[in-house]
């Protein structure tokens, strides 16, 4: 009885592998089943939905879709508003986060350490705790019911800043910037013409994350926006929920939910390699 290898004491490797696959299978099922049911139900008519769930899709997807866009919810303008707000937020956020990170990365000035420490300290404080002052101050500035309070604040994004700073630490040698200076390039044009192109991989990852979080944001837009034609998709979803939904055509409800979720899923599946790789980079490196 002098065996000293792990397999004899612990579980057999095949058993462990089987358990791992079983658990992974169940968890994957729990992640995906909801979207499958959503897809099936979006293709069925209201009366079919009333008769219970089926495994196979129905043929009412286009009918439901037509009913939805000709209905009372301003869904197409909602989509457009969401794209405009999320797109501009993402663009401004990555550009200015690069700029802030570059200021800390490439220059030496008084108070630099203090500012860096400060940005990292405010990183985790959620926007919800200042939202009361935010809406009252936006009211004073005459910016209620406008896209500005939903787009411009993304310029000051500590988490994105930190990601960019870390990326610069390993990918942007200062000697390159010295070389640009010797060639006579101005500081601002060095940033735009040399730094930004080198940051492309980091910019792509963070642009996706910022776009998605702005696209999904419900709390702040619901407090700022009041006119129908300015509403974003999450506000319309909430409106659907607070409507007397039993009177609704359930087929339309499911198409509406699918319409808000599936664009993100498609983009994600195309870019998943970069997205999953980018998750860890903002966190700690132990």
């Amino acid at each position: 009885m002098s065996t000293n290898n792990g397999t004899s004491k612990g579980m057999n490797i095949h058993v462990r592998r089987f358990i791992a696959y079983a658990v992974l299978g169940i968890l994957s099922f729990l992640c995906l089943i909801w979207f499958y049911i959503l897809f099936i139900n979006a293709t069925r008519s209201n009366s079919e939905l009333g008769r219970g769930f089926t495994i196979l899709p129905g043929g009412y997807l286009l009918t439901n879709w037509n009913n939805l866009i000709h209905g009372t919810l301003p869904i197409m303008s909602g989509m457009l508003n969401s794209i405009i707000i999320a797109g501009l937020s993402a663009g401004l956020c990555v550009y200015f986060s690069c700029m802030t990170a570059y200021a800390i990365h490439a220059y030496n000035f008084k108070g630099k350490k203090a500012i860096f420490t400060f940005i990292l300290m405010i990183m985790m404080i959620p926007t919800q705790v200042t939202v009361l002052g935010f809406i009252s101050f936006m009211g004073k500035l005459g910016l209620m019911d406008s896209f500005v309070p939903l787009i411009v604040p993304s310029i000051a994004a500590p988490v994105v800043f930190f990601y960019m700073k870390q990326y610069m630490d390993s990918n942007l040698p200062l000697s390159l910037l010295e070389a640009a200076r010797i060639d006579g390039s101005g500081e601002f044009s060095t940033f735009n013409r040399i730094v930004i192109p080198l940051m492309k991989p980091a910019i792509a990852v963070e642009a996706i994350f910022t776009f998605v979080s702005s696209w999904n944001n419900y709390f702040t837009p619901a407090l700022i926006i009041s006119s129908d034609n300015k509403k974003t998709l999450p506000i319309l979803i909430a409106q659907l929920r607070s409507a007397d939904w039993l009177k609704f055509d359930m087929g339309q409800v499911y198409v509406m939910i699918a319409f808000s979720i599936f664009p993100v899923i498609v983009v994600y599946l195309v870019l998943s390699k970069y997205i999953v790789g980018g998750v860890t980079a903002g966190g700690v490196k132990e």
Binding site: L27, S28, C31, L32, W34, L38, N41, V212, W215, N216, Y218, L233, P234, I237, A238, L240, R241, W245, M250, V253, Y254, I257, S260, I261, V264, I265, Y268, L269, S272, I275, V276, V279
Partner: peptide
């Protein structure tokens, strides 16, 4: 890819889905 997917879904739409 599968287990990360729900993290990107609009929470309000996911919740509405669960409600229905």
């Amino acid at each position: 890819t599968v287990i990360y997917l729900p993290n990107l879904i609009m929470a309000s739409a996911f919740s509405m889905l669960f409600f229905t």
